[in-house]
């Protein structure tokens, strides 16, 4: 299994996101007052400042906004992965998340901006929280 760094707790803003990941749910928030989609998680709306938000669960589908294939990472958790793709994915409910693109034989050739992708929750040797990554849909 992969051995990516785990999120660290206590961390009050992102904890519900990661508890969701344990249940196979990709969570995000919306503002109760102005309906803005709030992401990364936090306790206020970034558009109007409201303190009232609601957690929702995404269908987990989206589009690659941009990406890069990392050829060199000196941190131990990634040094042995080989070339891997980091990306921003525009998730269909309206939030953009940093993630990895998996499930391609050659990330340097098979990933494109605009590609449709879907989430999967990758279990980790490093701890109890699976990491939401995306693969071509």
């Amino acid at each position: 299994m992969p051995n990516r760094p785990q999120p660290q707790f206590p961390e009050l803003d992102s904890q519900p996101f990661w508890e969701g990941a344990k249940n196979g749910e990709l969570r995000y928030q919306t503002c109760d007052d102005c309906k803005e989609v709030v992401f990364y998680p936090r306790a206020h709306c970034t558009k109007c400042g409201s303190g009232k938000t609601t957690w929702r669960t995404s269908k987990g589908t989206g589009t690659i906004y941009t990406y890069s294939v990392v050829r060199q990472n000196r941190s131990p958790a990634f040094a042995d992965l080989g070339a891997y793709a980091v990306a921003y994915v525009d998730v269909d409910e309206g939030f953009r998340m940093l993630t990895n693109i998996v499930g391609v034989d050659d990330p340097t050739k098979q990933i494109k901006v605009g590609m449709k992708v879907k989430v999967e929750f990758e279990k980790q040797d490093s701890g109890e929280y699976p990491i939401p990554v995306f693969r071509p849909a």
Binding site: Q8, F17, N100
Partner: peptide, 15 residues
Amino acid sequence: GGNWQGNMEIPYGAT
């Protein structure tokens, strides 16, 4: 990780 931003980014190895 351990903060609002790091917890959403560190797992992905974005150098």
